[in-house]
């Protein structure tokens, strides 16, 4: 086992611990910290997948933008001490874990039976190829994504303005 594999195992461990912390932590702020850990771990996995541009975008968009947005929402949605308890009943925990475990097992079986076990072909797709893909065959989805983001931002602004005017 060389150094790269040890770092890889550490990244996987950090990702899974972050995801579990997102699921099980009693406070929403700690859940957000776990989400950030999982996102950094996924960025590290992107680097191991030979796509550093994707890792940079992951850190920039997810960790940089969405997390700050969620933190603002947590701060705006009232003081923390008046927050109700974060979890639902114990029966719902059982139901949630059951549904999630069934999906986990089904997908695991599907994945193990479908895809080849070994084999890492050479992968030379860089940032330039992603840009080519976006501007050749994925032109319409690219433009639609920009339209979606503009409409989303305008909708958020509209919601804020009209709700304030009515009260």
């Amino acid at each position: 086992m060389n150094a790269g594999e040890i770092v890889f195992l550490f990244i996987i461990l950090a990702t899974m611990c972050g995801a579990a912390m997102t699921l099980f932590s009693p406070s929403i702020v700690y859940a957000l910290v776990g989400l950030v850990t999982a996102m950094f771990g996924v960025a590290g996995l992107y680097i191991y997948l030979n796509s550093p541009f994707l890792a940079m975008m992951q850190i920039l968009i997810y960790v940089g933008a969405i997390t700050v947005l969620i933190v603002f929402a947590i701060m705006l949605a009232g003081p923390l001490y008046r927050r109700p308890s974060e979890w639902t009943t114990r029966g719902k925990l059982g139901a949630a874990l059951g549904v999630a475990l069934i999906s986990l097992l089904l997908f695991f079986r599907f994945v193990v039976e479908t895809f080849p076990k070994y084999g890492a072909p050479r992968f030379v797709m860089g940032t330039k190829d992603i840009g080519r893909a976006f501007f050749n065959e994925l032109m319409l989805p690219f433009e639609l994504i920009s339209l979606l983001i503009v409409v989303g931002i305008l909708g958020a602004i509209m919601l804020a303005i009209f709700s304030r005017g009515r009260r």
Binding site: E86, L93, A96, V111
Partner: peptide, 22 residues
């Protein structure tokens, strides 16, 4: 497997959390 585990935690969290931000 890591992706499936993230999906698992996400589904369980959506069902289990009580607040909308969670």
């Amino acid at each position: 497997f890591v992706a499936i585990f993230l999906l698992f935690c996400g589904i369980a969290g959506v069902l289990y959390r009580r607040t909308l931000i969670g």
